[in-house]
Nucleic acid binder design. Sequence first.
RNA 1: GGAGAGAUGGCAGAGCGGUUGAAUGCACCGGUCUUGAAAACCGGCGUACCGUGAGGUAUCGGGGGUUCGAAUCCCUCUCUCUCCGCCA
Length: 423
Amino acid sequence: MLEIQRIRNEKDAVITGLKKRNIDATETVESLLSIDQKWRNSKTELESISAELNLLAKEIGDLFKQGKQDEANTSKAKTATLKEKEALLKAEVDGFDTEIIQLLYQLPNVPNDIVPAGKSELDNITVEEVGSKREFDFTAVPHWDLAKKYDLIDFELGVKITGAGFPVYKGKGAKLQRALISFFLEEAEKAGYQEFIPPLVVNEASGYGTGQLPDKEGQMYYINEDDLYLIPTAEVPLTNIYRDVILPSEDFSIKMTGYTPCFRREAGSYGKDVRGLNRLHQFDKVEIVRIEHPSNSEKALIEMIDHVKGLLEKLGLHYRILRLCGGDTGFASALTYDFEVYSAAQEKWLEVSSVSRFDTFQSTRLKLRFKTNDKKTQLCHTLNGSALALPRIVASLMENHQTPDGIVIPDALRKYTGFDIID
RNA sequence: GGAGAGAUGGCAGAGCGGUUGAAUGCACCGGUCUUGAAAACCGGCGUACCGUGAGGUAUCGGGGGUUCGAAUCCCUCUCUCUCCGCCA
């Protein structure tokens, strides 16, 4: 959620920024500002009436104490009209209040200066490409066929037990999952991230805190009976650790990591994009989350990008980094870099990580702040990224490292898998 | 699932209709003292919003009500804890 103060102070910058998302926010911003003005007027008036009433109440109390019943009753009579006025203004202020919140919820984050304008993934900018497409002297097989050939993943079995999008990993396939999780977690730990095992189910307040609610309600599995949500990413429980927290000083840099399964309804997805591991309802992911001083979030983002690059390089994968355009950047994000790995067998790029900075967009809702040196409270910046999401990594490992003799495990992973080839 | 208890400032914990934004203790910050530290003493110490400012308003789990006046009374919701049952 954008801060109303920011809209007051930087109205034009907000509108110009949002244009990069192909949103003309002029109308929303204007009505926001006019309601805000009305809200402030009514509020000031309301408060002066409340002050008057408080004073009267005190006087009446004193009069009663002194036994001056008559005078007290005279004063009492005076309060009636004031109370009526107060109730009226209160209703007005509350009304404006909800209108403002409603409008604020509609506005996505303002993109960072370096975010290009654009409508879709076609307008994203490739900022870096590392490695090159692997040449095969045989026909590369897509991962869903390899999974069957080596008996690593059973999609049909998942359908039987649960439904589409819930694969069953078997044998070396299961072990590969576990190895990747360990590898990612240990790399994160080496980079200074503290590991957490958070709940996989969160309450409504947490959903609002990171911005999944109210906009993306339909994306999460909802447990009606207990009013709880299955997490779509570890970002939600990890970031919410710091909901309603005021850090005591300016000197902080919080780095958290966690492995969790992630649950996504993916309502409306279909077609070849969902084949095999490409899009699932349940998948594993190691997430990294950072809470930073505003002056440090730019540097933090770079560090996170470097971290993800390191992972992909150790896995020997050919990848590219995209700076997402306004239209493709997530609602809450100010700047997002996507990592894509090229799948030679599918002949396309697969998104394996998304690293974003949210600036104060989440911390406004989270009420996550810190104390400045002169004892003021200020909002923190939040960032997060996948490091990494497993399914497409598994897919591209299988597809890119396939040989006629089997699937070769990258060196960095062997101490975790305990085997160096799947055959 | 059954029964009961509770929710107050960073923590602990008073208050149970009228200078209570809230005692007291601990923690924390500043000062005095000290070579330094500890102790002792003095002072400060929640958050948000409105107002150029002086200042004001709100806030004792959430919402509603009674009252001139509510942390205190009533209703309701949520959450937590304890015991019993069930159970990894």
